[in-house]
Nucleic acid binder design. Structure first.
Lengths: 230, 230
DNA sequence: CTATAGGGGTAGGGTTAT
DNA sequence: TATAACCCTACCCCTATA
């Protein structure tokens, strides 16, 4: 399903414990935002902190490894054993991507594409329609407000290598089913894409996907009286 | 802590729904005091009612217990319409897309994942923020109105299989650059994605992309006084 | 002062995934 | 299976608004 389960590194656990010592337990958000630990715990939410602490407290396997490290009483200052193992795994792989990505986020942050963003997109949409890659459908709805939604024209030549001779059929079907099942869940799109990715090498889909999301996006972009229905 | 968590009974929920149907949403105190439900809801405050309704609206709980039960309409038909919508979009067989698509638009309309959809998303958004995958920034603006905008935290661990052993590095970087460069151009997303696709087999990107668009979507969804900032 | 909307936070039950 | 990580629900707090 979702994220591949982010295991806690030793560093993170340390920060958490330190944070608890400083702010006390139950002040998860404070700990998480504390500049002293914020960097380390950047990938963790206050809820994650809470849960982690709970898990640690619960495991307390035997007497050997108390999850403690926290003040006073019952302090087995030991650090849980398992964390070191985990940290090793993380450290190796994660470092590069991390630096890069944080750079990105800074860049993104600095730019703040302003209010005309909507208009811009809207324009782009129109162009795509003109180019016959999208179809536009208009419909009247609440209070005579015109809504439009755009659909991908599948026969349009999109993107890249196109025609992967692969098996497009089954995946699609599967996806539809999954989507159907996901009906009551919030994130259909998410599900759909995940499934797509899982099922196929996703080379074929991705053009699709891109468009799809663009559509969704644009749909949303339309603004006010819009209906999101997937 | 103090409160042992009083789970809502079916009876209470029914009373609440009935109350909403009678008094309308937002009349929590009225509902709670209504002699018809007062006994059942004796243990609940108007605020509890509000919160419960909020929770119900947000969770879109499984078919059995729609937050619905409220008036009229929207008894979702058996097969979700959007299933066709989505499958059609992803389908490669372009032939019948048109018909489907017009159906879709009708269906979408008919469906009206209703007003609570926004709340739904809103909630999800908040969660993402909590999970530190989005950043939220508040700013004061027109007439002391608080605006919030969400930004993607690029360093968040997104996606699926993660660590594709392949070349995650270069592509990511490139994308960042493109985004940065595109600053003054209109279609950051579009450009970025295109470039990303071009450059690589896009296997790596797609997770990224997916998230990106999802985020955009959610961003857009915010509606009213929103600032798009990337 | 009363009530509502809604953001935000925590505890704890429950679910997934490994 | 056990359990670490994660999600959901109930409750609370707060502020802005009417």
């Amino acid at each position: 399903m979702g994220a591949p389960k982010q295991k806690w590194t030793a560093e993170e656990v340390e920060a958490l414990i330190a944070g608890i010592n400083k702010h006390g337990t139950g002040k998860w958000k404070n700990i998480q935002k504390d500049p002293e630990y914020a960097h380390i715990l950047a990938a963790r939410s206050n809820i994650d902190l809470k849960d982690k602490w709970r898990n640690m407290s619960v495991s307390t396997t035997g007497e050997g490894s108390r999850p403690k490290g926290v003040k006073s009483s019952t302090t087995t200052p030991k650090t849980p054993n398992y964390m070191y193992a985990i940290s090793a795994i993380f450290e190796n792989t994660a470092s590069d991507t991390y630096t890069v990505s944080s750079e990105i986020s800074h860049n993104l942050q600095r730019h703040e594409v302003p209010s005309n963003f909507r208009r811009l997109l809207s324009s782009k949409l129109r162009r795509l329609v003109v180019q016959d890659k999208l179809e536009k459908v208009k419909l009247l709805s609440h209070e005579t407000k015109v809504q439009a939604y755009h659909k991908i024209k599948k026969d349009a030549t999109f993107g890249t290598k196109t025609q992967t001779p692969k098996p497009p059929q089954e995946a699609t079907l599967l996806m539809a089913q999954n989507i159907a099942e996901a009906e009551n869940k919030s994130f259909l799109v998410n599900e759909a894409v995940k499934e797509a990715e899982r099922v196929e090498g996703m080379a074929e889909q991705s053009a699709c996907m891109k468009q799809f999301f663009e559509d969704v996006w644009e749909l949303c972009e339309r603004g006010e009286p819009m209906i999101m229905a997937f």
